[in-house]
């Protein structure tokens, strides 16, 4: 099986720092990690390869530093890793990111299964992988908590989706794209032998030219999403103590509530 694992590098949300006014979170200079959901992605992909043979390619869109996330993927046991990175791609929204990833997937060539995490902890849109499936025209099974059966010979996959109040079993043809939730497995740690291999690996970097993408069709300029910061409005409240015994206080309270047109 040819399996592609979609991996994102994100800030470590456990180590974000707050600005002095307490209104903004900054990941600047903080450690960056493999998106925690994508650890399940990688484990799912590696387990599928261990069971059915083939190859796992980890694919990541991000800045040059995101190669570190791919090194972790290699240390966990993927066979190949490709970084898609180009200054022109910076600040792409989820749909633009999906278009870039689709171009990279087409360049990789044949695939049987694409695995992604349910979302990335930074943007948390849970949209990119879904859009990748739509643009590729392959079936999507999202929120997968269990792969009941994966049959490369008959080209089918049966997976259990974890919904809010139910579990739903879906069977699809291959190739397909699945997004996984943390109930699906227990991600392995990178092994020492894997770390040795990963440290030596050179990770190919594909830019706009490699993917035959016009730089004007990617990045912030090509994205439809406009980010704005909205602060919660402040609410003024007063506290008024009502003196007197219970009966008098109750009477006064009712009068005040009627005065304020609450009742």
């Amino acid at each position: 099986m040819n399996i592609i694992a979609l991996v994102k590098q994100t800030p470590d949300t456990a180590q974000l720092s707050a600005s002095m006014d307490g209104l903004r979170l900054s990941a600047e200079g903080g450690p960056r990690i493999v998106n925690p959901w994508d650890e399940y992605t990688l484990e799912t992909a590696i387990q599928a390869r261990e069971e059915h043979g083939g190859k796992v390619t980890a694919l990541c869109l991000g800045p040059p530093e995101a190669a570190d996330a791919l090194k972790t993927a290699l240390a966990m046991g993927v066979d190949e890793a490709i970084l898609v990175s180009d200054p022109a791609m910076a600040d792409s929204d989820s749909l633009t990111s999906a278009r870039i990833l689709v171009a990279a997937i087409r360049k990789i060539g044949r695939f049987d299964l694409i695995v992604g995490g349910r979302a990335a902890i930074d943007g948390n849109t849970a949209a990119t992988a879904v859009q990748v499936a739509a643009l590729l025209g392959v079936p999507l099974i999202s929120y997968v908590a269990d792969i009941g059966s994966l049959d490369p010979e008959h080209r089918t996959i049966s997976a259990v989706r974890l919904l809010e109040k139910a579990r739903e079993t879906v069977t699809s043809r291959l190739p397909a794209l699945i997004t996984v939730v943390k109930e699906i497995n227990e991600p392995r740690y990178p092994s020492l032998i894997g770390i040795r291999k990963a440290a030596r690996a050179s990770i190919p970097v594909w830019g706009c030219n490699d993917l035959e993408l016009d730089a004007s069709t990617v990045g912030a300029g090509a994205s439809g999403v406009d980010w704005k910061t909205e602060l919660p409005t402040t609410r003024e409240a007063n506290v008024e103590m009502i003196d007197g015994g219970p009966e008098d206080a109750a009477r006064t309270l009712v009068d005040r509530l009627m005065e304020e047109k609450v009742i």
Partner: peptide
């Protein structure tokens, strides 16, 4: 620390 050492450090602390 080399890249390899940094990966070892991260993995060991995660394990711990």
């Amino acid at each position: 620390l080399s890249e390899e050492h940094q990966m070892v450090e991260r993995m060991v602390y995660d394990f711990a």
